[in-house]
Amino acid sequence: MAELLSGIEQLAPVEALKASFWVYPLVNAAHIAAIGTLFACVMLMDFAALGVHRRLASAGAVQLLRPVALSAFGVAVATGLLLFSVRATEYAVNPAFRLKLLLIVLAGLNFLLFTRTDPPPRTTATVSLVLWCCVLLAGRFIGFL
């Protein structure tokens, strides 16, 4: 595992990313944009399931928001891998990073539960909101531990 992680750090494109002045902050910005998009979509879909706003309750809202959320998640994973790659060895043992990954897995399982029931149970929507807030917080703390 240690070899794999230090191997990632030594890949030529990763070395370039480490030294870059523009690219790293741009990847960072794209990561934030993707998270913001994902978070907004998740919140709106959960609010729809909770009946927070009448206009969200239409089936169209979720139909529109889900593909956007899934694409944003894809971008967040791709940019996240790039950010991870420059100091893979360090991030792999960072408690906030590990917690974040665990929370994303839990949010994924919760999403499966959410999609398998119609209408989605209110608890699933609440759990989703709580989990994604925690993902956001855990992610923010990576740089502070």
């Binding site: 009946g51 706003h53 009448r54 609440t126 909101l129 709580v130 917080l137």
Partner: peptide, 17 residues
């Protein structure tokens, strides 16, 4: 129609954060 209130757990979480 009044929008339904957010569950207390969600409000509590946001405040705690």
């Amino acid at each position: 129609m009044q929008p339904a209130a957010l569950p207390k757990s969600v409000v509590a979480l946001v405040v705690a954060m």
